[in-house]
Amino acid sequence: MSIRVLVADDQELIRTGLAMILDAQPDIDVVATAADGLEAVRLAERLRPDVCLLDVRMPVLDGIAATRRLAGPEAAQPLAVVVITTFDLDEYVYGALRAGARGFLLKDAGPALLGQAVRAAAQGDALIAPSVTTRLLSVFAAGEPGTVPRQPFEPLTEREEQVLRAVAAGHTNTEIAAGLFISLSTVKTHVASVMAKLGVRNRVEMAIWAYETGRKP
């Protein structure tokens, strides 16, 4: 079955372009587009798409607030959200990731990476643009003075530390499996274990925790 996607961006040209790129991929179907965050939330709650692709800066309701409503801890039935922005060091992006977004891309990422991010989000995975992963997360994690990162409920094993760093570097499960010479199912087991030990909801929060605690890739 096709992955059902909602695209929200206040610029009509960009919104239309993103929708055309995604619709051109055989396994993705754009079911709705929105020009502002509030419209995106209303459409998403009604249509329940598999993935919501949201711009950060939108009128009426910005991308952070929309993400929080759709994917945050208070969302009764959270949806997968991928944030997309023009800026690779946008202060709003960190807030969007904190609000529950599963991925982050730049608008110049290209059709292939855009499709990968949507597929990853639909599968419960996450993809952060590799070109900005280290810059974005390290800058904004360091920019929260006085914050003491929570400690894991149980110590991470050496292999779990390796997987955590790989996730923080923006690698997919398949890439991690190849890099560590382990099976894909083993990677998924380690990722699930790390999430449980850290008390986080997704891979993005894993990456943020890694940067907050100095575990840079």
Results as ranks from 00 to 15, higher is better:
residue 146 G to E: 04
residue 110 G to I: 03
residue 110 G to R: 01
residue 44 A to K: 02
residue 156 L to T: 08
residue 190 H to F: 15
residue 185 S to A: 14
residue 37 G to H: 10
residue 190 H to T: 03
residue 215 R to N: 08
residue 144 E to H: 10
residue 20 M to L: 14
residue 172 T to E: 04
residue 104 F to M: 13
residue 148 V to K: 12
residue 150 R to M: 09
residue 194 V to H: 09
residue 216 K to Q: 12
residue 176 I to E: 00
residue 141 A to N: 00
residue 120 A to M: 13
residue 106 L to N: 03
residue 118 V to N: 05
residue 100 G to V: 14
residue 84 I to P: 11
residue 43 L to M: 11
residue 24 A to G: 11
residue 93 V to W: 03
residue 177 A to M: 04
residue 24 A to R: 06
residue 161 E to M: 13
residue 205 E to G: 00
residue 134 T to D: 11
residue 17 G to D: 05
residue 84 I to S: 11
residue 205 E to Y: 04
residue 87 F to K: 04
residue 36 D to R: 00
residue 148 V to P: 02
residue 63 G to S: 12
residue 159 R to V: 13
residue 59 P to T: 07
residue 138 S to E: 15
residue 179 G to A: 15
residue 215 R to A: 06
residue 11 Q to P: 03
residue 167 V to A: 08
residue 107 K to E: 10
residue 216 K to P: 01
residue 156 L to I: 07
residue 46 R to C: 03
residue 181 F to D: 15
residue 78 P to T: 12
residue 32 A to S: 09
residue 217 P to F: 09
residue 25 Q to D: 07
residue 43 L to D: 10
residue 29 D to N: 09
residue 161 E to C: 09
residue 87 F to V: 06
residue 33 T to F: 04
residue 33 T to E: 05
residue 200 V to C: 06
residue 52 C to W: 08
residue 143 G to V: 00
residue 122 A to H: 05
residue 42 R to M: 13
residue 114 L to C: 12
residue 40 A to Y: 02
residue 55 D to W: 05
residue 68 R to T: 13
residue 163 V to A: 08
residue 138 S to P: 07
residue 153 F to D: 14
residue 102 R to L: 15
residue 92 Y to N: 02
residue 11 Q to V: 13
residue 6 L to T: 08
residue 133 T to R: 03
residue 200 V to A: 01
residue 82 V to A: 13
residue 124 G to L: 14
residue 20 M to R: 11
residue 103 G to D: 07
residue 209 W to D: 01
residue 29 D to E: 13
residue 99 A to F: 15
residue 58 M to Q: 06
residue 57 R to E: 13
residue 151 Q to N: 02
residue 46 R to W: 09
residue 92 Y to W: 10
residue 199 G to N: 11
residue 180 L to K: 05
residue 126 A to M: 09
residue 205 E to Q: 15
residue 204 V to F: 01
residue 103 G to C: 11
residue 122 A to F: 03
residue 91 E to R: 12
residue 149 P to D: 12
residue 169 A to N: 04
residue 40 A to S: 12
residue 114 L to E: 09
residue 205 E to S: 06
residue 193 S to A: 15
residue 9 D to W: 00
residue 70 L to M: 15
residue 64 I to V: 15
residue 204 V to Y: 03
residue 95 G to Y: 00
residue 140 F to Q: 04
residue 50 D to G: 09
residue 198 L to M: 14
residue 133 T to V: 14
residue 119 R to D: 08
residue 145 P to W: 00
residue 153 F to H: 14
residue 27 D to H: 00
residue 45 E to T: 13
residue 75 A to Y: 11
residue 54 L to C: 08
residue 89 L to Y: 07
residue 82 V to K: 09
residue 66 A to N: 09
residue 110 G to A: 03
residue 135 R to V: 02
residue 160 E to P: 07
residue 127 L to S: 04
residue 190 H to V: 05
residue 21 I to R: 07
residue 94 Y to M: 15
residue 81 V to R: 05
residue 103 G to V: 03
residue 131 S to W: 03
residue 35 A to V: 13
residue 204 V to L: 06
